[in-house]
Write a protein that binds this DNA or RNA. Structure first.
Length: 440
DNA sequence: AGCACGCACCCTTCAGCGAA
DNA sequence: TTCGCTGAAGGGTGCGTGCT
């Protein structure tokens, strides 16, 4: 019994440690744009050692555009700002007991050239990348990508750190934030102002003073504006789109019934539950349809597959959800859409198609029957290997008879085999392969 | 062009709180 | 309990941006 408790305690310490570490990266940055945050997550997740053993990553502009939900507009300008800001990212690692700390620059070079956005991390950051990557992965990439409000994104990140405290029965836990602290955490003030930094470094920082007196740049000063534009928007988006469910209550005191704190009630989101009517007419909860672990891959898969129409990650997520996270069902609907002469509202048509369960056989796709069969084969392999998915499937694909021909094709495009393995992720390799099969 | 959304700011009304 | 102060509520506007 006692041993168990110690173990549990250790586990919690460990959690806190890693969370704090990733948190130091997440919160370090004031006013990071959504695009920047998303880019950072994607870059971390994808980063690999390059030929000189430096961690680096390349992301195509088109992919960033898709993943950020940005399908047009002044993309270049946004990317430029994000890159500048990313280059200033630091991780702050502190051992409070030993009174020692270090500040590490994360990114050495961020470059945009010929439609490719490349990031090279500093060698010093190297030893922390795995930690950061793990933490970001557990934060469910896809959830981060769905928020359209920066305040929602921030609040989600903050609350996600408390998720582990929620018990098995999912009774809401209460997290109390003073209004000032919450505003600080949600970046309503610029924590990079020097005076604020000084106050924050004290043992017991006075959040009230920071938010009310010290800060020069303030946003949403009135509580009602803060509530309307930050809290309510965040609550709506988190509850509708994420794996968390929140509610909040303002805590009032003082003359005028001033809101001095906010109690946040945090639960896991069980909205994914499916309700069904049994024969005798009673309503029962059927098996919970949870977002699969490989949702990111599924979304990328769908985005890559749907080439004729520009589709955001958010829309891809919606289609997948409609299809019970069956990527093939979405693809089949898309293949069918290609046979239609005119579709006015692509998303509307796709959702209707999926919901009405109209799934034509995959052989109706454009191209030869043989190509269709091969594509189908790859997708079936993906389905049956969901756990470690792409790596296994890609290895298997390499054994196929037509793989040498595929290599030859790549060579004609100026891409050699080792470049593929070094630069492309297995999903991307598969995508290349599938595209090639469809094309040939 | 028209609409929706995110965010910020302003104004009037009225509710909550402490003091008398 | 009442009074007066303070600030929340909630409606409105405007700007920028993305989507249809």
């Amino acid at each position: 019994m006692k041993e168990e408790e110690i173990k549990k305690h250790e586990l919690e310490c460990f959690r806190n440690e890693t969370i704090t570490r990733s948190n130091s990266l997440i919160t370090a940055k004031y006013k990071s744009s959504l695009l920047e945050n998303k880019l950072m997550v994607l870059a971390l997740k994808r980063s690999k050692k390059d030929t000189l053993n430096r961690p680096s990553v390349e992301i195509s502009a088109e992919e960033i555009r898709k993943l950020s939900g940005n399908t047009g507009g002044s993309f270049y300008g946004q990317l430029k700002l994000a890159a500048k800001s990313m280059a200033n990212r630091t991780i702050f690692i502190e051992d409070a007991e030993k009174k020692q700390f270090k500040v590490i620059n994360l990114i050495h070079v961020a470059e945009y050239k010929n439609g490719m956005f490349s990031i090279r991390f500093t060698p010093e950051a190297n030893e922390y990348l795995d930690d950061l990557r793990d933490n970001f992965t557990t934060m469910k990439l896809t959830t981060l990508f769905v928020f359209s409000s920066n305040y929602a994104y921030r609040l989600y990140e903050i609350l996600k750190m408390h998720e582990y405290k929620i018990g098995k029965d999912n009774t809401p836990i209460v997290i109390n934030y003073s209004l000032a602290e919450l505003k600080l955490e949600m970046n309503c003030v610029n924590t990079e102002e020097k005076a604020i930094q000084r106050e924050l470094q004290k043992d017991t920082p006075d959040y009230e003073r920071i938010v009310n007196d010290i800060a020069k740049e303030k946003h949403l000063e009135n509580y009602s504006d803060f509530r309307k534009n930050a809290l309510d928007v965040a609550k709506k988006q988190i509850n509708e789109l994420s794996d968390l469910y929140i509610d909040y209550k303002p805590v009032r005191s003082g003359r005028g019934g001033k809101v001095v704190a906010v109690d946040i009630y945090l639960q896991r989101n069980v909205n994914n539950k499916m309700y069904a009517i049994t024969e005798d007419g009673t309503e029962v909860v059927t098996e919970e349809l949870l977002e699969p672990e490989n949702m990111t891959e599924l979304i990328l898969d769908i985005i890559d597959y749907i080439t004729d129409v520009k589709i955001s990650s958010r829309d891809a997520g919606i289609l997948l959800k409609d299809a019970g996270y069956n990527a093939d069902a979405v693809k089949k609907a898309y293949d069918l859409s290609k046979t239609q002469t005119e579709i006015k509202n692509f998303m509307g048509w796709m959702r209707k198609c999926i919901k009405e369960d109209y799934q034509p056989s995959i052989e109706t796709m454009s191209g030869s029957q043989e190509a269709a069969r091969q594509v189908k084969e790859v997708h079936e392999d993906i389905e049956s290997n969901k756990m470690s998915l792409s790596v296994k499937v890609w290895e298997k694909t390499k054994q196929k008879d037509n793989y040498p021909a595929f290599l030859q094709y790549l060579d004609s495009q100026g891409i050699s085999e080792d470049i593929i393995d070094a630069i492309y992720s297995p999903e991307e390799c598969l995508k290349l392969y599938v595209d090639w099969v469809k094309m040939s």
